[in-house]
Simulated scan of single mutants.
Amino acid sequence: MSDAPLRAEGLECIRGDRLLFSGLNLTLSPGQLLQVEGANGAGKTSLLRVLAGLSRPADGEVRWRGLDIQRNRTTYFAAMVYMGHAPGLKAELSPVENLKVSAALRDRMVDDARIEDALARVGLRGFEDVPARGLSAGQKQRTALCRLLINPVPLWILDEPFTALDVRGIALVRELLEIHLANGGMALMTSHHALEVRGDCRSLHLT
C-alpha cells in the first residue's frame, strides 16, 4: 500500500473538550471504497472533513500522492469532490445554474448539454430550470449527485449520500459508485445503509 494516492497517518480529532479519535491511519488506492462506520457522534463527519481538507486535525496529516493536502490544497481540491450532509444548492438558482456555478468554482467550463445529460441520468429530466427552492429533498440530493458526473475526478468523499433518496435513488448511487471504482476511482463515504456495492469495499469503524 506504499503507492496509495491517499494516506492519513496519526490523525487526531478533538471537538470541544472531547477526543473523537486518535492515532488513526488509513490508505486508499485506485478501485477502493472505504465506508466509515460508527455511532452518532463517533466522529464520522469530522473524519471526512479532515480527509477532505476542510478541517485540520489536532495531530497527524493527510497526504495526496505524497504531499500534505494542507500545503497543496489547489492540487488536492482539483482531484476530489466532497458531498456533505446538505446538498449545497442556492435556492434561487435552477439545477442547471447551480451545477454551472459548481463547475466554475473548480475553474471548469461545462456546457449545457453535459449538465442536462447528467440531470437526465439522475432522473431530473423536466426539472432543469426549476429553482432549487421548488425541488423536493430527494431532487436536491439528486442535483448534488450530478457534481460527480460533471466533475470527473479520482476521489469522491461522500457524507451520507443516500440521504432523502428513494429506492431508485439509492440504486443510482450504488451504480455510480460501482462504475467509479471499476474505472479506477476511489471513494470514502459514511452511510447508515448497508452497502451492496461490487468492488474492493472496506470499512473503518470509529468507536
Rank of each mutant, 00 (worst) to 15 (best):
C13M: 14
L93C: 11
G16L: 06
L24P: 07
N72I: 00
P87S: 14
M80C: 15
A86Y: 15
E97L: 11
A104F: 13
L93V: 05
N40R: 03
I69S: 07
S94T: 13
R106H: 13
L93Y: 11
K100D: 08
S29H: 00
M83R: 12
R71A: 13
E37P: 10
R71Q: 14
G23W: 07
V36D: 04
S55Q: 09
R49D: 04
L34T: 11
L19I: 10
L48E: 03
R56L: 12
Y82E: 08
A78L: 06
I14R: 15
G43M: 01
K100I: 12
L34K: 02
S55I: 00
D17G: 15
C13A: 10
N72P: 01
A58M: 09
G41I: 00
A104E: 15
R65C: 11
W64H: 07
L51W: 06
G16Q: 02
A42K: 01
S22R: 15
G23N: 12
S55N: 15
S102H: 14
W64N: 00
F77R: 13
L48P: 03
V62L: 07
L26P: 01
L24C: 06
E37R: 12
W64R: 09
L93A: 03
R63Q: 09
D17L: 13
S102M: 13
G60Y: 01
A58I: 04
S29A: 14
A79M: 06
S102D: 13
G16V: 07
I69V: 05
V96G: 00
R63S: 08
R56G: 08
V62D: 00
E37G: 06
P87H: 09
L20T: 02
A86D: 13
L54D: 03
G84I: 09
L26R: 01
V101D: 13
P87E: 04
Y76K: 07
G84Q: 08
G41K: 08
